[in-house]
Design a protein around this nucleic acid. Structure first.
Length: 810
DNA sequence: ACCAAGTGCGCC
DNA sequence: AGGGCGCACTTGGT
């Protein structure tokens, strides 16, 4: 082929750049990349760089010989500076790409990255996070259609190895399909009146499995209403084929007593298996609707099934953070990837913004019908896939996560009381203090000609620092303090740094905690946190709106004081003692650790004694602190370097100790591991095994999967392989106790929330000590593992979270 | 006006 | 080369 062969080149901005042509056998699968990079140009071959290597490995692991694949690019010319090719360049090269694929007689096409997608199937969408894995047919010319799947560019996987699972799944889809997934038809019935509703509810009541989904005016079961009630069924059509049937009960019928009773009867049919997506939400709403503590007898939850299969932590929709922006557990996301449907979507914002009489109810019902339908289809697929991977995963979901989620729903609904008046006072006080600090800083800033100074702006802080000649590598708290210490700072510098830090702390407390809590309190002064069972990769719960898992402890005792018990009642906090270390002892079976816990010895002291070669009685406070520091470091996989540089060394110096050198840290690390050979062996076993298995499993059946191992991530993976099972099982002991206790506790004893390894209860002032015994028993004895390691909970009691007193109790 | 990314910091 | 999170704020882009 020659340049003249491509009519698009005349108008192409890349004309004249080095070109790299497609390569590989014809008649089979083609992979289309973006544009050749420097390495490709040098070797005159597409996909020979790092991305190419990853792609080949993926193909190999899927059982495909990369040599059997035809590989080319959406743009043949190499853009300068490895930039992405422009839209014009993509358009100019498009005809060439299609004719190349046609002349190579390809049967199927996989594209990697957003650029070939925009050339091959722009109608599918642009954002690759929202379009990868959707199989479609594309036209190469008027008579040739081929099956096509877009996926991530391997470069994206290098940045975020977690995306590898999506890439792998998309590749397998291409290999196992020749055309888009053929779905059953789905008929959506919108009930017209009461008799119509009763009729359709009766029709679906014969099904053995139904999905249920609610559309509501908002997220609060306390104050929001149901917009429509939906049920999904799979039925056998006249020609013997499966058909979807979604029955939608619209708002004007939902709240009619006769309908409500019919719904109640349906929901209580004991033989029906109920399928929800995020059951916590719908079931709590149904409890309000039915005015009873409704729990389906047999049920599952596709979101939690999905989570059992893919434990990647989910993003909250409202914030940005460093975990990437993909969502993996959403119903629509799953439907799109699995069933090749375009992303369906209903804009509730617009719906509510529209005057009531003009609202597009039909679209809402259509959308709702799809939700019910796909929930049911998704359930089918997930159950099969999970059973295939490991029988424990279904049991984990249905026997543990689902009841846990429902208990959390009830706990959230009840909420927890906060002291509004107290917080308002605290707000005023903190605002005044902030104003003072700001004034001090502005005075200095003005001295250097900075008229408008905002201490919350990292840029302006840097500017001020430059002005006063303070140069820290970053404006992070610890870095700044360290820099301050190392340099001979003037009094002015010192006070500016101090005020900046004070400003940050106070404004954090004010906006995140004081205002954050006030903003989220309901009219009864209660907050209703949202706990996510599917929020973390290890199985811990995540919590938001408000997040009760990061309420300050130290100075923020002030904030904890805002959490109170109702009149005549007390808060009771039951906290596992050294849970993760005990779990590490359990996993490893380390005799030393076990006997320390069995004899109720102080493990940290014991470690200190071993590290500093002295009898336990002579261990100082500081030595114990150092030992504790190493103990936790081990679980997190910290290395000697990190130990010697940790902020904890600040404390050591404050206490009159000497910070460790790298060498000292190495020595102590080694001494620690020598004193606990069982633990050391377990750690190396985990590190070795994860490379072999590419996952770790906990006794609860949870998995942390590492499908992609590279030289860059192997260190991380091995650390996680040690930490994940520990963190996961520890968290499950607490979570399991939480939801069992939620069911067991007598009237007047409630669970308010949990913070990873502790549970907050609210109990009567004249509580029965036997109930406390039961709590301790459930948390430490009635647990899902056999353990020679004893577990222990410490209990604290008080009127306010910030002022809890230890309860002597074993 | 709304968004995504970056920075920084609260907890276990 | 420190495991797991959520939230507020600024800034630069659209």
């Amino acid at each position: 082929m020659t340049l003249e062969g491509y009519p698009g080149c005349e108008k192409c901005p890349l004309a004249g750049q080095p070109m790299v042509f497609g390569k590989g056998p014809s008649g089979g699968i083609a992979i289309v990349g973006e544009a050749p990079g420097t390495v490709e140009v040098a070797k005159k071959e597409p996909f020979v760089g790092l991305s190419g290597k990853l792609l080949r490995e993926t193909l190999n692991s899927a059982g495909v010989d990369p040599g059997a694949i035809y590989i080319t690019n959406a743009v043949l010319c190499h853009p300068d500076k490895n930039e992405a090719p422009s839209k014009t360049a993509i358009q100019c090269c498009r005809a060439r790409l299609l004719s190349e694929l046609k002349s190579q007689k390809v049967q199927k096409v996989l594209s990697v990255g957003a650029i070939p997608l925009s050339a091959l199937a722009p109608e599918v969408g642009t954002a690759i996070t929202k379009t990868h894995g959707i199989g479609t047919m594309i036209n190469l010319d008027s008579e040739t259609q081929v099956y096509y799947v877009p996926t991530y560019h391997p470069a994206a996987i290098i940045r975020d190895p977690d995306l590898f699972r999506d890439l792998a799944r998309d590749v397998i889809k291409l290999l196992t399909h020749d055309s888009p997934v053929d779905l059953p038809d789905c008929l959506t019935i919108v009930c017209r009146d009461v008799p119509d509703t009763l009729y359709w509810l009766d029709v679906i009541s014969k099904a053995s499995r139904l999905s249920c989904d609610l559309e509501t005016t908002g997220l609060s079961a306390q104050s929001d209403r149901i917009l429509s009630l939906g049920f999904g069924a799979l039925t056998i059509g006249e020609e013997g084929d499966t058909e979807g049937l979604s029955v939608i009960v619209p708002r004007n019928l939902v709240y009619i007593d006769e309908v409500r009773e019919a719904v109640r009867r349906l929901l209580h049919i004991p033989e029906i298996k109920w399928v929800y997506h995020n059951s916590k939400f719908d079931v709590i709403f149904l409890q309000q609707y039915l005015q009873e503590r409704y729990r389906p007898a047999i049920m599952t939850d596709t979101m939690l099934l999905q989570y059992a299969q893919d434990e990647r932590g989910s993003d909250t929709e409202s914030t940005s953070n460093d975990r990437g922006s993909y969502r993996v557990h959403g119903l629509k996301d799953q439907a799109r990837m699995r069933f090749d449907i375009p992303d369906y979507h209903f804009d509730f914002k617009i719906f509510y913004a529209t005057p009531e009489e003009e609202r597009d109810w039909e679209s809402l019902y259509t959308y709702h019908g799809k939700d019910c339908f796909f929930t049911l289809l998704l359930c089918d697929e997930l159950e099969k896939e999970l059973d295939d991977e490991s029988p424990k995963l279904r049991q984990l979901t249905e026997g543990f996560l689902v009841p846990g989620a429902l208990a959390l729903g009830e706990i959230e609904f009840a909420g927890t009381k906060i002291d509004i008046e107290y917080l308002k006072k605290l707000r005023t006080q903190t605002e005044e203090e902030l104003l003072f600090v700001e004034t001090q800083l502005r005075t200095v800033a003005q001295k250097y000609g900075i008229e408008k100074f905002n201490p919350a702006s990292p840029l302006q802080v840097k500017e001020l620092f430059t002005a006063i000649k303070f140069f820290a590598p970053s404006s992070e708290r610890e870095v700044m303090l360290m820099t301050l210490k190392k340099t001979k700072a003037t009094a002015e510098v010192e006070s500016v740094v101090k005020y900046i830090l004070e400003f940050r702390q106070k404004s954090k407390v004010l906006s995140t905690y004081i205002e954050g809590l006030l903003k989220r309190a309901d009219s009864n002064g209660r907050v209703h946190p949202d706990f996510w069972v599917h929020g973390t990769a290890t199985g811990r719960l995540s919590c938001h709106d408000p997040n009760l898992q990061n309420i300050p402890t130290l100075m923020g005792q002030l904030i904890r004081d805002a959490f109170i018990a109702d009149e005549g009642r007390l808060l009771l906090e039951a906290d596992f003692s050294q849970l993760e270390l005990r779990i590490a002892a359990w996993y490893s079976g380390d005799q030393e650790m076990i006997s320390a816990y069995q004899n109720n010895e102080d493990l940290h002291k014991k470690v200190a004694a071993a590290m500093f070669k002295k009898p336990v009685e002579e261990v100082t406070h500081l030595e114990r602190y150092m030992a504790k520091y190493v103990d936790f470091g081990i679980i997190y996989g910290r290395g000697a370097k990190s130990l010697s540089e940790g902020w904890e060394m600040e404390y050591v110096v404050e206490q009159g100790g000497k910070p460790w050198t790298l060498h000292e840290a190495e020595v102590f690390l080694k001494k620690f591991l020598d004193s606990f050979p069982g633990l050391r062996d377990w750690i190396s076993y985990q590190q070795k095994q994860v490379v072999k298995d590419k996952y770790i499993e906990t006794p609860m059946g949870r998995r942390r999967r590492f499908p992609l191992l590279t030289n860059q991530n192997i260190g991380n993976v091995q650390r996680q392989a040690v930490n994940a099972p520990v963190q996961s099982l520890a968290s499950d002991l607490c979570f399991g106790a939480l939801w069992r206790l939620h069911d067991l506790l007598p009237e007047g004893y409630n669970i308010r929330f949990t913070v990873h390894d502790s549970i907050m209860f609210e109990i009567p002032e004249n509580y029965d000590p036997e109930v406390l015994e039961m709590i301790a028993f459930e948390m430490t004895q009635n647990i899902p593992i056999d353990s020679v390691v004893p577990f222990q909970v410490d209990m604290k009691i008080g009127k306010r979270w910030g002022q809890m007193e230890k309860l002597k109790h074993e």
